[in-house]
Amino acid sequence: MKHNGRCAVLFVCMGNICRSPTAEAVMRKYLVDAGLANRVIVDSAGTHDYHVGCPPDPRAQAAARKRGYDLSALRARQVTPADFEAFDLVLGMDFNNLDLLQRMCPPQHRGKLGLLMAYAQRHNATVVHDPYYRGSKDFDTVLSYIEDGCKGLMQSMVAHGALLG
């Protein structure tokens, strides 16, 4: 499905304050840098409502800022039923969130679901682990995984013609 010629990607983690907003910001920057920002709608959400309306975790913001990403304007929101219709790809950060998405998703949209790390090329991880209860070093690792996954995702979208007129 295209939205006025644009592809739409939703990144999902549990609370939408660490991993998924980081993925949203990273993907946006990659698209801007590649001159493709007008081709893709990027958003993020959480499977839970714990932090709705809150900004990203200060540790996630600090890790991102060190590498040139700005998360400060983002606010947490929860996945809605309409998201499964509106987005072409709904990418979870780990198996728990993917499982929740699969349970929430209408059958006709389940083909849109996946894991961000399926697109990774440098790291051999299958998921982006939740750094929330961990230290700042874990936020840096999470960011490295997300950068890898987003870079591979963008390359896959270009290779499959999703970003072409």
Rank of each mutant, 00 (worst) to 15 (best):
R65F: 15
K66C: 04
K66S: 06
R67F: 01
G68W: 08
Y69P: 14
Y69Q: 13
D70H: 06
L71C: 02
S72V: 07
S72N: 05
S72D: 13
A73W: 12
A73S: 15
A73E: 08
L74G: 04
L74N: 00
L74D: 00
R75C: 08
A76K: 03
Q78G: 07
V79D: 03
V79L: 05
T80H: 12
T80A: 15
P81A: 12
P81G: 14
A82E: 14
E85M: 02
E85H: 10
E85C: 00
A86H: 13
A86P: 05
F87I: 12
F87D: 09
F87Q: 10
D88W: 07
V90K: 05
L91W: 00
L91K: 02
L91P: 04
L91F: 01
G92P: 05
G92L: 01
G92D: 01
G92Q: 03
M93S: 05
M93I: 03
M93L: 07
M93H: 07
F95Y: 12
N96C: 08
N96F: 14
N97S: 07
N97T: 07
L98V: 13
L98N: 06
D99A: 15
L100V: 14
L100E: 15
L100A: 15
L101E: 02
L101M: 06
Q102W: 13
Q102A: 11
Q102K: 13
R103P: 03
M104F: 11
M104W: 06
C105F: 06
P106S: 02
P106E: 05
P106V: 10
P107A: 04
Q108H: 11
R110A: 03
R110N: 02
K112W: 08
K112Y: 11
K112F: 13
L113F: 02
L113C: 10
G114V: 04
G114E: 05
G114C: 06
L115M: 13
M117I: 01
M117P: 00
A118M: 11
Y119M: 06
A120V: 04
A120W: 01
A120E: 09
A120Y: 04
Q121A: 08
Q121D: 01
R122V: 03
A125Y: 07
A125V: 04
A125N: 09
A125I: 02
A125D: 12
T126K: 10
T126V: 08
T126M: 07
V127C: 09
V127A: 14
V128H: 00
V128N: 09
V128F: 02
H129G: 11
H129R: 12
H129E: 15
D130V: 03
P131F: 11
P131R: 07
Y132E: 12
Y132K: 13
Y133I: 08
Y133R: 14
